[in-house]
Nucleic acid binder design. Sequence first.
DNA 1: GTCCTTTCCTGACAGC
DNA 2: TGCTGTCAGGAAAGGA
Length: 294
Amino acid sequence: VPELPEVETIARDLNRHARGRRIREVIIHAPKLVVPLTVNAFQGGVRGKTILGVKRRGKFLLVSLGVSARKPTHILLWHMRMTGHPLFRDERKETPEDRSAFADSRNRHIRLSFRFTDGTRLDYSDVRKFGTLHLVDPDHISTHRSLVAMGPDALDPSWTAEKLHEALRKRKKAIKVALLDQTVIAGIGKIYADEILRTARLHPLLPTRRLTLADVRRMFRAIRTVLPRAVRARGTSIDDYRDLRGRGGKYGNVRRIYQRTGMPCFRCGATIARIVVGGRGTHVCPQCQRHPRP
DNA sequence: GTCCTTTCCTGACAGC
DNA sequence: TGCTGTCAGGAAAGGA
């Protein structure tokens, strides 16, 4: 699941490997990925364009496309949802290790492929085909439906614990549901929500309005600890996520609670439980994450 | 406006 | 063995 650390890793790697390359053609095997555009309209929009640069907002990739290096003509607004990840391939330079990584089952569901003029390509693997690729006019990108309601990025330097406290005070939802709500905070998904709440010692079912400013400050610090650490580890690959070369990130090796059901808590030794919060599987230490009192 | 439910899709897995 | 049914979930859409 590409969350902030995974999308950040992809954006950085794309700037290194794909920036400056010109798209000769895009091959689309799953037409629904580019809805509302038709396959022809999408192909016409990207054909001949050069990748000028890649940014991240929340879990979205923003790929600037243009004919000259100056002003983009289109922004490719790309969301990978559950199982999507791009793979950069240069078959002339691939080692046997590279080829074995690309042969991994997680990397073999190619739904779309950007072919560059120099013979390299960017494949997009997405088992469940939930991903979306929208072509947006650069002048309208900030008012695009997917971005206009988006809350502050979880790593936005101007965002503070006090602002988060204010946003949470008026809501009634469980804190884990709020962490996953991209209009409250952008970039967090199920893996890092569980890791953050464990680090902050908060129970996922706590209603947000019951959090004190001290609770929110602790959670804010956890966000600013866990996410950068996961960026440095190049993400988590317990599920489908792989990097541009088809390889896994290392945060799964140092995670504290996600997918550790039945195993002992690293802090208190109690058995990690799995509960359901807002319809999503959730990992919690019943002893050291404070349980909401009725 | 917030909150809740449904939809999309495939692979993994349980049960018979 | 081979079939059938269930489950997982990010975000958007539609309804309360």
